[in-house]
Design a binder for these strands. Structure first.
Lengths: 143, 143
DNA sequence: CAAGAATACGATATTAACATGAAGTTATCG
DNA sequence: CGATAACTTCATGTTAATATCGTATTCTTG
């Protein structure tokens, strides 16, 4: 459903959202907490910074932190940087017919549309804040 | 959502289901009709044969045809040969938590489960016959 | 039974995703 | 100001999916 990269990004963002007072966490600690390879996560984190989802600081007290409030950050914003999901997705006909799905969608395409929109809606409507409320019981900050 | 290979298989199967009287079609014609590379499609067709979904015949009057009735063939049966979808799918926690989803699923996982099951259900409950009824207006046999 | 037509199958090439390693840059702190 | 810690960036390696090619095998037909 999600690429490994997108899932990595999601885990890292949720880890950061768990930090108390919006404290920043270092890439190394995030890598350990999420189980994502250090250098690979570095790239992903940087992508998230360039997208305005995270902020980074260099130097001794550096690290990453969320640039927005968890409740204002949808999973789609994170995931769509790496995967083709959601509004911009190609959502093309399952059978490869280019013109299908416009007016008068046939029964199968209608059903397919419903199913694939369930996925899109999930990512669009779920925020990182929503995830946090789940994790509160066992969630521990990274650093 | 689907790998290219799974989608190729789906298109080929639907093409074959369109054949009148269960006539067989040759790999070359299927390749042209579906837009799938000839040799690559050959492998996919062979996989479908080994799975019992198609029958093949060699020689001059050879080709491929459905081994089951379109109404008895779900999209899942075709797709699951190539992608990890449906009942056997790993359907693991989005956040990578190994133990989640058992008793007392948290709100997000509940929502995620609903969405991903919508996809599974679509593939499980839709048959190739269902697809055919859509295509009837414009569908033309391969050979 | 020989020729032709089709699938079967293994070897190889290409591409994108995933991952690693090392050197470069910037900020903090003593 | 120098040392250290952290992000940044580029180059490279690995793996799996995708695609191609050539040959072997099998069936039909004349």
């Amino acid at each position: 459903m999600l690429s490994g990269t997108a899932e990595y990004a999601l885990r890292a963002v949720v880890c950061l959202a768990r930090q108390p007072d919006g404290q920043s966490a270092r890439a190394n600690d995030l890598a350990e907490a999420t189980g994502v390879p250090r250098n690979y996560l570095g790239k992903i984190l940087h992508d998230l910074v360039r997208a305005g989802i995270l902020e980074s600081a260099r130097g001794k007290k550096g690290g990453f932190k969320l640039a927005v409030r968890p409740e204002d950050l949808t999973l789609l914003q994170v995931v769509s940087l790496f995967d083709n999901i959601g509004v911009g997705a190609e959502r093309r006909c399952l059978m490869g017919r280019p013109e299908c799905g416009g007016a008068d969608p046939c029964p199968v395409h209608h059903r397919w549309k419903d199913a694939s929109e369930a996925i899109s809606s999930f990512f669009e409507e779920t925020t990182v804040g929503d995830v946090l409320s789940d994790e509160r019981r066992e969630g521990k900050p990274v650093a």
